[in-house]
Write a protein that binds this DNA or RNA. Structure first.
Lengths: 341, 341
DNA sequence: AATCACACCCAAAGCGCTTTGGATATATCG
DNA sequence: CGATATATCCAAAGCGCTTTGGGTGTGATT
């Protein structure tokens, strides 16, 4: 059942039927009702490809996922982000198109998407420090929103970021206030913008307290449970081990916890753990008193909002760049306590 | 730069250029080379929408993700599956189209996809016992592959499943052999086909050993860490607590471990844990001796394979249904040991 | 020299939709 | 009543590609 068939059934021209369906004013209310009725009765669905060929708009948003050997983008954080963005898209009638591409193909794919407008806009995931993708996309004129930020100022393009620097400064400050002086930082890969900022925040708070950064107490790596475990194990072997850990992800925090328990140390009493919590749906940190003290910001909510921002920009091409920075909340859980004497 | 422009530059008709690019034989080698050359030089990329409108093929595969309030499909397992499937798609030049849809819209979305062929085929995620989607898709004539199985026989459609029943029977048998008689089952939601089968496998092994199933030792729920923790806590409060746990996911196993550690119990010595392991990239169960004893099957590999199967079916419409069942391997880790006397 | 078979190329239709630029009928107005 | 709006509809072109159904020129065959 296509437009032509439907219009024949109605004894109208395709033009009129198209206008009736798309809410143009040049059609009487009576006919419009008749058309809408028939469309429903015959289960008419416009062919999206034909529609987008004619209009130039595709009603679909691209997410390009680098398939790196070095770095795993398809991670749990990504999944929750997608879920959030997907909600927004489906409400607005948009589709989501995922391309998993090897690093070396990434630029090519962007150019391709831009050249024949396969998508109306794209979301940039996992920005690195001074990420080249931003410049490329600006040059290509393809609307985009970055989840995170690539540069310090983040001027000239749209992004939504958590105030990672402030969050980690606050977290560190909180641990310092509890008397901790040796804090192990278990960070993400620091070429990633978010991890870089977290590192800076951590050092901000340390230096404000007159403490110099200690490389022995800092790790950067893929944020997995085994990584958290390994990092904590190493640091706990030091002559003067940390009395607290600050981790960049929930999974890493779980690894740290395991390292403590290996040694019969109790989190929150013997050693404190403070983690960033992305509020992943299947890693809830809830309960009367949450398990972990955490700086918290929902990545799913971020997905929803990024998608909204992008749709705004896509529907209004001269929309000014939208930039949003979210403050993480610091929630108290069971995993922190005063530094042991 | 489109076909027409390119053909003008070459002084050829669009027909010939199209044929040259798509490898038809009706064009001389010399012209073909000339065309391919020019295409590269001018960065010509055929417009996918126009192409698919003309051919009827879209070069894209749909993944429909139910956005349920009850059940969270966008979970870590899903992310890894997507990563695997995405690899296959990108190699074959296909795109992946994700639709996050509310439960009540699911059938509508399938009908829509089928009616105007927005995708060449789809992957069905998270089949439930006697899942109505199978029948619907068969009726719609849209090629599809199920990750899992909906019915016992699984006849008449394509699927790739882990032998969940056998895996859990083996796992249970293994625990029984170690002397465990009270085994806590921490399963997924049992309306899901995979969880249902795992339950059956568990009971197979129990009854083979002359042990009746004990409802007090069985839980079914969303496979999260807190769920694993809560389930284990409850069971450990029983008068005769289990000496071993069999869990359906790595995250749940981590919750169980935490419950043990809360009580000062050591996994593998005081209480055993055996889990299903999907070999998620960020939850590696590796090392000289893995942390957990597990029945293991990579969901990422499954994603790759499902995508391959679907592409086979899509490219050859009269392809017979492909059905594959994978045996999980049972790997020994540190989390199991003989039942305490 | 006429015939045939190829190899090579092209014009034009068609995929399903939107949109431009009228056409026609009805209502409004001086 | 004729002129002018206004409301309602339509024919046809166009989006960028593929594909059908020829057409033309060359060399081989008779």
């Amino acid at each position: 059942m296509n437009l032509k068939a439907l219009s024949e059934k109605l004894g109208l021209s395709p033009t009129t039927v198209s206008r009736a369906l798309n809410g143009y004013p040049e059609v009487s209310d009576a006919t419009r009702r008749r058309v809408l009725d028939a469309a429903r009765r015959y289960h008419y669905r416009p062919n999206t490809r034909a529609k987008s060929l004619a209009t130039g708009r595709t009603m679909s948003i691209g997410h390009v996922i680098p398939l790196s050997t070095k770095h795993e983008m398809v991670n749990p954080i990504f999944a929750d982000f997608i879920a959030g963005a997907g909600e927004t898209y489906s409400r607005a009638g948009y589709d989501m198109s995922l391309s998993v591409v090897r690093d070396e193909d990434e630029a090519r794919v962007y150019r391709e998407l831009a050249q024949n407008r396969s998508v109306d806009g794209i979301i940039v995931h996992g920005p690195r420090v001074d990420d080249p993708r931003i410049g490329l996309l600006q040059e290509l004129g393809l609307p985009f929103v970055v989840h995170g930020r690539a540069s310090e100022t983040g001027a000239g393009y749209s992004w939504l970021d958590v105030n990672n620097r402030r969050a980690f400064a606050r977290a560190t400050r909180f641990l310092l206030d509890l008397g901790h002086r040796r804090i192990g930082l278990v960070n993400g890969i620091e070429t990633m913008s978010f991890a870089h900022r977290r590192r800076l925040g951590h050092e901000d708070a340390l230096s404000a307290a007159g403490i110099g950064p200690d490389p022995a107490l800092m790790r950067a790596g893929e944020m997995t449970e085994p990584y958290g475990h390994a990092a904590a194990c190493e640091m706990l072997e030091l002559d003067r081990p940390p009395t607290a850990f600050l981790t960049s992800s929930f999974l890493a925090a779980m690894g740290v916890r395991r390292a403590l328990e290996d040694r019969g140390l109790k989190p929150g009493r013997d050693v404190s753990i403070l983690t960033h919590d992305d509020v992943l749906s299947y890693l809830a940190n809830e309960g009367d008193v949450p398990l972990y003290t955490a700086v918290r910001s929902s990545v799913r909510a971020a997905g929803r909002r990024c998608a909204e921002m992008l749709l705004d920009i896509v529907t209004d091409p001269d929309h000014a760049p939208i930039q949003e920075i979210w403050e993480a909340e610091l929630v108290l859980g069971q995993s922190t306590g005063p530094a042991p004497a």
